[in-house]
Design a protein around this nucleic acid. Structure first.
Lengths: 217, 217
DNA sequence: TAGATTGTTAATCGATTAACAATC
DNA sequence: TAGATTGTTAATCGATTAACAATC
């Protein structure tokens, strides 16, 4: 507040912490609906089965106004702070490639806008899908991808094609100016260093489930 | 080999490493198809953009016969070792709750058997879905869940219901003897400590994508 | 005031990376 | 033999947890 140089302090939020904030947010939204004014880190921790310190540190990293001893944090303000930190407030446009079962499911999901994402169009090689719509989003041939991304300045691409097609699609996305890729294909994607690939590694999840089960015998 | 007590050495494979093995496996399978006999950690690392040491350590953790200096690891054997470590060799049966878009996508996916998972049935509250099939898997009312899980000794449950229904479904699963839950709902689930909840935290992925984008401006 | 609660520094833990000796 | 490659010990890094002083 009264610092000489008031830079926008670079938020030191770890990747792990970013995974926890959506849970905080959901919990806080419920509180807010019930008209709770304040909340303590201890209560959040108990509810989400985390350590108090961890919650305290996480909240300290995003909260603009410091929490008040005895009271805790004002719920509404905290919600805003988390939304800002996760950038849920500004809506990013995305395109999706691969309108199979999973692609269709993602296209149909209404909840992404809560997370600041809007899928505006889909692409697929299958001609029978072209010009059809899923949840109001049109499906185009891949040839249209570059043009559309350039024209609308789309920077997020979602890959839901089979593994053997993923790498080609990835190159196409990168060549179309995409800077962040959400990859559901089980394959390693090679990209320039200014592009981020976020893998949704379901095979890893399955292996962890199976491992747990094996240990329980 | 020539140790006095030959216990089954508890594999010290980190969670992170488990996430990498599916990528190793995919790469090795391709090599195998091309009839490569041996492979070095360095080559794998270069291909998947990892550090050599990391690959070496990961492989050392699962490989039964040690790798050979100059040669590397025998491809076919390594594939077997990884499959065993990830337990892809034994097929686990699972049931799925919530036959919406995402649930249907998972039911339709043919690739899970490669990962040692077989979804044998689905459940949904919606009466119009009952007794219909997706990819040969029947959809039942939730009342049938307990009986079916008990009868067939199913230990894995997949949650693809809306967030506000997830916690109730979770309790039902736990009460039906389920020991491992793959949770796609964006909500914290509370379970007894012998039950594992594996969250597929898509909100976290989105936040990471969005954050990267914001940093690129 | 006393005590609930915060924010922060230090200790611990787990995973990655560096360095290097062993060996085919 | 020389050198590519492994396996392992030690150093580093990032995140979590413990300890504790500050404060409303």
């Amino acid at each position: 507040m009264n610092r000489a140089s008031k830079e926008v302090k670079e938020s030191p939020i770890s990747k792990q912490a970013i995974g926890r904030f959506p849970y905080y947010l959901k919990f806080l939204n419920e509180l807010n609906r019930d008209h709770h004014e304040h909340i303590s880190a201890a209560t959040i921790a108990a509810s989400l089965q985390l350590y108090e310190v961890q919650v305290r540190k996480d909240l300290a990293a995003v909260s603009r106004s410091a929490g008040k001893p005895r009271l805790g944090f004002p719920v509404a303000e905290l919600i805003d702070d988390i939304k800002r930190a996760l950038r849920y407030d500004n809506l990013d446009q995305a395109i999706l490639v691969g309108a199979g079962h999973l692609g269709t499911a993602l296209l149909s999901y209404k909840g992404f806008s809560d997370y600041g994402l809007e899928i505006i169009a889909a692409f697929d090689t299958k001609a029978s899908l072209h010009e059809t719509e899923v949840n109001g989003k049109k499906i185009f041939p891949l040839e249209n991808l570059n043009g559309l991304c350039r024209r609308l300045n789309v920077k997020i691409g979602i890959i839901t094609v089979p593994a053997d097609a993923a790498s080609g699609v990835c190159d196409l996305l990168v060549g179309s100016g995409i800077l962040a890729i959400w990859n559901f294909a089980q394959t390693h994607l090679s990209v320039p260093e200014n592009v981020l690939v976020q893998d949704e590694n379901m095979a890893a999840s399955l292996a962890l489930l199976s491992k747990h089960l094996a240990e329980k015998n």
